[in-house]
Design a protein around this nucleic acid. Structure first.
Length: 411
RNA sequence: GCGGGUGUCGUCAAGUGGUUAAGACCUCGGAUUGUGGUUCCGAUAUGCAUGGGUUCGAAUCCCAUCUCCCGCCCCA
C-alpha cells in the first residue's frame, strides 16, 4: 500500500453520519429566515483579494494574517474568510440597490481562515448568516437580532446570552479613539506588546486586554474615566436606545457590554454577539452588527445595512446529534431479479428500499434488514409462486403476507 | 504567531525496556439450506502518528516533524 494522504490541518470531513445534523441547521434556517422574508444567495467561495482588504479592513487580523491568498493569471485571489464582503459585492454588482428596501439575504457555506485550530475553530469552517440592506432605522437592528434569537430557539437553544454595544458613527468614534490614545500616551511603554500594536491599529480593542499590568493601567481613575465615558453622539445614542426599547418590547433578554468591539473594521453603531457557556474559550455562536459605510466603500450607493453570522460547527456542538433515518424497507430474497424489480417499483413510489446485492443467506439478509430498515419484505419461492410478499414489521415482529400490489400501503 | 499537553486496530482502550501487543465494540464468517434484534464459536495490528537515535533488545527512553486537544491572540 502506498502512503495515505490525510485531510489537511484544520479541515474536517463531514461524514454521512453527521449529515442529518447539518441538514437540520440548513432546513431550520430556510424555514425561519423565509418567515422574515429573507432570500437565499450563493456567492463564490473565492473573490478578488482586494474585496476583503477594502471590505473587511486591512487593519484586521483576518486580512493581515489569516487569509488564504493565491495568484492566478496575475490576479490575486482569496478564499473568503467571511461572507459579508462577498454578499455586498454581489448586491452592488447586481443592482440590488434598485430593489425596494429592505433587501434581505441569507447564506450558508464554507469560510477559510488560517488560524491555529482548536476546539470550535477550524481553518475551513461553515457559517450561516443574514444581511439586511437599505434600512437605517433601529427596527432593522432589532429584527435581525430577533431573527437570530428565534433561529437559535427553533433549533432548541434557549440558554444563550445576547450582548450588545454601540460603536457610534465614524465622527464620534474617531473623537473617542483620539481621546483614548491621548490619555494612554504617557503609559504607552508600560502596555503589553499586543496593546502597543492595538494602540495604532484599533485603539478600541485595548479595552478588553487580559494582561494584568494593562488592566491595572486601565483602572487608573483618569484613564478609567475616559474609557467608561459615553462617547457616542446624540444621534447614535438615540439609535441605540431605540434598539434597546424594541428589544425590551419583543422580550429579547440582553446585556450591554462596553468591551464588545468586534474585529472587523466595517461595523458602526450596533454590534452584538450571542454566547454560550458550553463552548470553552471559543464561546461566540453568533456575531454581527451594523455596517452603514461598507456598500459605499466597495463602490456602491450609500446603503445602510446590518447582519450577522453564526458558526455552524459551534451550533452543532451545542445540539444533540440527529439520528440517521432507517430505510423504509429491505427486501429479503434469494431471487435477485425479483428482489430488484420489487425494490425498483417501491423506489418509484418514493420509498427508500435496499436489497442484498450479493445474495447472502436468508438469515444474514434478515439480520441486515433489522439493522437498517423498518420493514423486511420477504420474497421467497412461496411468495413468488403466489404473487405475494411477506411484510414483516421489524420493530414488532408482526408479519403479513399480502398481494404484491398491496405492499406499498403497509409501509 | 507564542506557551502547555497528547497520539497503540475502523472506534474505545490495556500495556511504563525482555518471548506470538490484553480486552470490548464495529465489521465479516459459522452454529442456523425461510425468520432478525438475544446467545455461542471463529477471523481481523509482523505493528504502537512519522522519521531518526540510544540499547544485546524499544509501543515503552532521547531528538525532530506532524496531528489533535487546552490556553493566549483573534473570531463564528
Amino acid at each position: 500500500m502506498s502512503k495515505i494522504i490525510n485531510v489537511i490541518k484544520g479541515t474536517k470531513d463531514i461524514l454521512p453520519k453527521d449529515i442529518p445534523s447539518w441538514h437540520r441547521l440548513e432546513s431550520v434556517a430556510l424555514d425561519v429566515f423565509s418567515r422574515y422574508g429573507y432570500k437565499e444567495i450563493r456567492t463564490p467561495i473565492f473573490e478578488a483579494t482586494e474585496l476583503f482588504a477594502r471590505g473587511v479592513g486591512d487593519t484586521t487580523d483576518i486580512v493581515n494574517k489569516e487569509m488564504y491568498t493565491f495568484e492566478k493569471s496575475d490576479r490575486s485571489l482569496t478564499l473568503r474568510p467571511e461572507n459579508t464582503a462577498g454578499v455586498v459585492r454581489s448586491f452592488i454588482e447586481n443592482g440590488m440597490s434598485r430593489l425596494s428596501a429592505p433587501v434581505k439575504l441569507w447564506y450558508h457555506g464554507p469560510m477559510f481562515r488560517y488560524e491555529r485550530p482548536q476546539a470550535g475553530r477550524q481553518r475551513q469552517f461553515h457559517q450561516v448568516g443574514v444581511e439586511m440592506f437599505g434600512i437605517e432605522q433601529p427596527t432593522a437592528d432589532a429584527e435581525v437580532i430577533l431573527l437570530a434569537v428565534n433561529y437559535l430557539k427553533s433549533l432548541g437553544l434557549n440558554d444563550l446570552t445576547v450582548e450588545i454595544n454601540s460603536l457610534g458613527c465614524p465622527t464620534c468614534r474617531e473623537a473617542y479613539k483620539a481621546k483614548i490614545k491621548e490619555v494612554l500616551k504617557p503609559e504607552f511603554d508600560n502596555l503589553c506588546e499586543d496593546c502597543q500594536n492595538r494602540y495604532e491599529r484599533n485603539p478600541l480593542r485595548l479595552l478588553d486586554c487580559k494582561v494584568e499590568s494593562c488592566k491595572e493601567i486601565f483602572e487608573k481613575p483618569e484613564i478609567k474615566k475616559v474609557i467608561q465615558s459615553d462617547f457616542i453622539c446624540e444621534d447614535c445614542a438615540e439609535h441605540f436606545s431605540q434598539l434597546k426599547s424594541y428589544l425590551d418590547t419583543m422580550g429579547v433578554r440582553y446585556s450591554e457590554n462596553k468591551l464588545l468591539v468586534r474585529g472587523l473594521d466595517y461595523y458602526n453603531r450596533t454590534v452584538f454577539e450571542i454566547k454560550s457557556n458550553n463552548l470553552g474559550s471559543q464561546n461566540a455562536v453568533c456575531g454581527g452588527g451594523r455596517y452603514d459605510r461598507l456598500v459605499r466603500n466597495l463602490g456602491g450607493e450609500d446603503t445602510p445595512a446590518v447582519g450577522w453570522a453564526m458558526g455552524m460547527e459551534r451550533l452543532n456542538s451545542l445540539l444533540p446529534e440527529v439520528e440517521a433515518e432507517k430505510l423504509d424497507a429491505y427486501v429479503v430474497s434469494n431471487f435477485p431479479k425479483e428482489a430488484f424489480m420489487l425494490a425498483e417499483k417501491l423506489r418509484a413510489e418514493g420509498k427508500s428500499v435496499e436489497f442484498d446485492l450479493t445474495n447472502k443467506k436468508f438469515t444474514k439478509q434478515l439480520e441486515k434488514a433489522s439493522k437498517v430498515a423498518n420493514f423486511a419484505l420477504i420474497l421467497g419461492e412461496d411468495e413468488i409462486k403466489s404473487g405475494t410478499v411477506s411484510v414483516k414489521n421489524l420493530a414488532t415482529s408482526e408479519q403479513n403476507t399480502v398481494k404484491e400490489n398491496e405492499v406499498l400501503a403497509l409501509l
